[in-house]
């Protein structure tokens, strides 16, 4: 029993990271129909940048994270404006190729700017809480809480603000949104800015819980897409549930079935969900 509870807790922290990656992907996908493959590399960039600002530039960690999030927002806007906007009218395959090109560029830049060694963001949080044989490192707790706070504020933003309502309007019916006077030129910029900011947060979490190393970007974005399918394309509650399900499934698979095949089991669950509920766990039929 202790083992089961421990395994679920193990999965929640990584699940929180998956949720943040997927939130960015799902808003981009839901509104613009773009499979933004470079999202993982951009998240990596954010994590590396935070580490650089905190260590080399000497900023306090929270200030470094805030600065990296601001850079992330600008980067997201630039990506939409310079790379995706020119191919908006074309087939969605073209946008996908642009995404691949972006991935290579960002990966190459990361390597040039931050080197080839794995980057770990040092938080100095090393206490461990223990409750009835179940252990929770302090850091993991904060990551789960931070993810929850980000998810809540994202939900509030989309549900309660005018910009958020405009984003939802475009997602549901682009033509009608134009008729109602929504500025459809600005919406994609905001969406990319926000989703990249969320990606940067995910990168910071990966960098402080674990590490950012070459190749992690691809791993992150693949997991993010898996969450998208699990939860339902374009659905924010879907991304939250899907991310948690994926994180916990992986932990349980590694703990109770086979650590070598844990990813395979996670994908099998994803494909099974797709077969039984093609619209995803939370998607609308």
């Amino acid at each position: 029993m202790i083992e089961l509870v421990q395994q679920i807790l193990n999965g929640l922290a990584i699940g929180g990271v998956y949720v943040l990656v997927a939130l960015g992907l799902t808003t981009v996908f839901g509104i613009l129909g773009i499979a933004h493959f470079a999202h993982g590399s951009v998240s990596m960039f954010g994590g590396c940048l935070t580490c650089f600002l905190a260590v080399s530039a000497g900023l306090p960690l929270l200030a470094a994270i805030a600065a990296a999030m601001a850079v992330g927002f600008v980067l997201g806007v630039a990506i939409e404006l310079l790379a995706y906007r020119p191919v908006r009218g074309a087939s969605h395959i073209n946008a996908f190729i642009v995404a691949l090109g972006l991935t290579m560029m960002v990966e190459g830049l990361n390597l040039q700017l931050f080197g080839h060694e794995q980057v770990v963001i040092l938080t100095g949080l090393s206490r461990v809480f223990e409750i009835g044989g179940v252990t929770i490192p302090e850091l993991r707790l904060y990551v789960i809480l931070a993810a929850a706070a980000l998810i809540a504020s994202m939900t509030l933003f989309v549900e309660r603000t005018r910009t958020g309502q405009a984003i939802r309007a475009v997602a549901e019916n682009r033509e009608a949104a134009i008729l109602m006077g929504v500025n459809v030129q600005a919406i994609p910029l905001i969406v990319f800015g926000i989703s990249t900011t969320l990606g940067v947060c995910a990168g910071v979490m990966v960098g402080s819980l674990f590490a950012i190393a070459p190749g992690i970007g691809e791993w992150l974005v693949v997991k993010g897409f898996a969450v998208l399918i699990l939860g339902g394309l374009g659905s924010i509650p879907g991304a939250v549930i899907g991310g948690m399900v994926l994180g916990v499934t992986e932990a349980l698979a590694a703990g109770f079935v086979s650590s070598a095949y844990k990813d395979l089991i996670a994908f099998a669950v994803m494909i099974a969900v797709l077969l039984m509920r093609p619209q995803g766990l939370m998607g609308k039929a």
């Binding site: 790379a83 020119p86 191919v87 073209n94 190729i97 642009v98 691949l100 090109g101 972006l102 991935t103 290579m104 560029m105 960002v106 990966e107 190459g108 830049l109 390597l111 040039q112």
Partner: peptide, 13 residues
């Protein structure tokens, strides 16, 4: 990597 990626984006656009 950077040049290859850039070439792809420009070619697609």
């Amino acid at each position: 990597l950077i040049i290859y990626g850039l070439a792809l984006i420009l070619a697609t656009i």
